[in-house]
């Protein structure tokens, strides 16, 4: 019995210590930016690695999800003769939920795991230590540009995801199933509001970007520098950030969309 309490206490303390270290890392990299002359090229490079390299998977997934949504939505709506409402159905579900959430999940798998593995390997091969010994702060040089790159690219990726998915829905709904293209767009335009839907979706996406990039960088930075440790850290990145995204999505939805 005492043993159980002891273990519980130790786990709790470890968790709190980890949160402390993670916060320290985040603050150390956020308020410790390298000067623009050196920092900007690093940021651009990471935007390319983290953002641009994720474009393909985001666009392909978006296209298929939009097509599937349109197909499923149409079969239900057509029974009620409401197939003209396919436009807002697809647009609202994408902008409010699927866009930010699926982008964050894909981003965690595609870019988050790569960030963790890269930083973990840098740690294992002593590159982080050697930066420190060369009097270069790894938080500034390695963590900060990657963090900002994730934070900037994910909302943009989510917007691209939603846009491509709506086009996919158009492809299926209008070009294949024969909904009138005018009503597809005009009803969508009338039903989607900029602040309530698009802006809230963007805010969600920013929160997810913060959480996913933070988890990915922290897991890499704090991993045990062995091959086993890195593989564990990479898995944890995907698992923890996916769960965090889904949990936070519920909280955010409750705050934003419940009346």
């Amino acid at each position: 019995m005492m043993d159980l309490f002891q273990r519980l206490g130790r786990t709790t303390l470890d968790k709190f210590a980890a949160i402390g270290r993670a916060t320290q890392m985040l603050l150390g990299s956020l308020f410790n930016l390298p000067n623009p002359r050196k920092g900007f090229p690093l940021l651009v490079r990471q935007l390319y690695m983290v953002g641009h390299q994720s474009l393909l998977i985001i666009m392909v997934s978006g296209l298929f999800i939009g097509m599937v949504l349109a197909l499923q939505g149409y079969t239900v709506l057509v029974d009620y003769g409401a197939e003209d409402s396919l436009g807002p159905l697809v647009a609202l579900s994408l902008l409010r939920e699927l866009g930010p959430v699926v982008t964050a999940l894909l981003f965690a798998g595609r870019a988050g795991s790569a960030l963790t593995a890269e930083i973990g390997l840098m740690k294992a091969t002593e590159q982080l230590s050697s930066l420190e010994m060369m009097a270069v702060d790894p938080l500034k040089r390695i963590i900060a540009p990657r963090f900002w790159a994730g934070f900037i690219s994910m909302p943009l990726l989510a917007l691209i995801f939603s846009a491509v998915a709506i086009l996919g829905a158009h492809l299926v709904g209008v070009d294949w199933l024969g909904i009138d293209t005018g009503s597809f767009w005009s009803i969508m335009q009338a039903q989607v509001s900029l602040e309530k839907d698009i802006l809230n979706g963007l805010i969600k996406s920013l929160v997810f970007a913060l959480v996913v990039t933070w988890i990915a960088l922290y897991k890499g930075y704090d991993c045990i520098p062995t091959s086993e440790g890195i593989s564990k850290a990479t898995t944890e990145t995907v698992v923890h950030s996916s769960l965090a995204v889904l949990g936070l999505d519920f909280v955010l939805t409750a705050v934003m969309f419940s009346n």
């Binding site: 091969t125 002593e126 590159q127 230590s129 420190e132 010994m133 009097a135 702060d137």
Partner: peptide, 19 residues
Amino acid sequence: LYQTRTKMSMLFQSGALFT
């Protein structure tokens, strides 16, 4: 500390070159 470290350097066992 960072100021002082510019006056010392360390050769790591693995070399620790940036790959």
